[in-house]
């Protein structure tokens, strides 16, 4: 079985994240870039299946700027067998539609039985790509899975929907997305990091995939304005001297919050 895991480099959520006010693009220099945690969990789902099922091939796939190779390599250090990195100047500012077309084309090229992605990234919080990619590839999509079972020809699991929990299943090939309920990704050990350097790492361009980022028949979402909200200012801060609860109740009452 061939499992392709979609991974993404994101600005570290625990650091300061900035947008460029001129271009509306993420300011990649402003914060440390990391492999999105939900992507690590997705890799873990694939690797734990591979551990129990010899002969499983795990590929990590990412569309990311040139400087992101080191982040993608972390997927290899965790244990994936190979990596595919789609990188092209034509992808700067790509919207979800173009991203989905690119990833779908890359998946066709790589081949897959199962595609695993995170339910939402920590930066864009879009959460639409797994469904978009499934639509473009005409395969089933089972999103937001809290638990995943993979067999020879099916994937199934518990899906956390909005008002219900459901059991879903799909015949392979299929696309799934997983939630934070899945286990954390394993920590790459020294052996894994050394082995990653020798694993296949393919870099692919838009021309390789036959995609025109400016195809006139596709409507794209574009940023037309960006502004930074003034930082929130701290208000009153008191040290409790025995009546802080009462003062707080007074504050809430004055602001009509009780």
């Amino acid at each position: 079985m061939k499992i392709v895991v979609l991974i993404k480099e994101v600005p570290d959520t625990y650091g300061e994240r900035k947008l460029n006010i001129e271009t509306g693009l993420a300011d990649r220099g402003a914060s440390e870039a990391v492999l999105d945690e939900i992507g690590e969990r997705s890799v873990e789902v694939a690797l734990s299946h591979a551990d129990a099922h010899p002969g499983t091939e795990v590929v990590v796939l990412s569309m990311a700027p040139e400087g992101s190779a080191a982040t993608i390599r972390k997927g290899l250090a965790m244990g994936a067998g190979s990596a595919v990195h789609v990188v092209d100047p034509g992808l700067v500012g790509a919207d979800t539609g173009l991203t989905a077309e690119v990833l779908a084309a890359a998946l066709r090229r790589v081949g897959f039985d199962l595609v695993i992605g995170g339910n939402v990234s920590t930066d864009g919080s879009g959460g639409v790509l797994p469904a978009m990619i499934a639509e473009l590839l005409d395969v089933p999509s089972a999103t937001s899975l809290n638990a995943v079972e993979i067999t020879e020809d099916r994937v199934s699991g518990e899906r956390a929907s909005d008002a219900a929990t459901m059991r879903v299943s799909a015949t392979l090939p299929a696309v799934i997305s997983v939630t934070e309920r899945l286990p954390e990704g394993r920590f790459p050990n020294f052996k894994g990091i050394m082995a990653a350097k020798k694993k296949p790492f393919e870099t692919v361009t838009l021309a390789d995939l036959g995609i025109d980022p400016e195809a006139p028949e596709a409507s794209r979402s574009i940023v037309i304005g960006v502004s930074e909200k003034p930082p929130r200012e701290a208000g009153v801060k008191i040290v409790d001297e025995g009546d802080a609860g009462e003062q707080l109740a007074e504050f809430l009452a004055q602001n009509r919050l009780v």
């Binding site: 989905a100 919080s125 639409v128 469904a131 639509e135």
Partner: peptide, 19 residues
């Protein structure tokens, strides 16, 4: 809603704005 929006936008090649 996100799943439906994603599939619909991909199918019709419409621009998609999320969240």
């Amino acid at each position: 809603g996100r799943d439906a929006a994603g599939r619909f936008a991909a199918r019709t090649r419409s621009g998609l704005a999320v969240d």
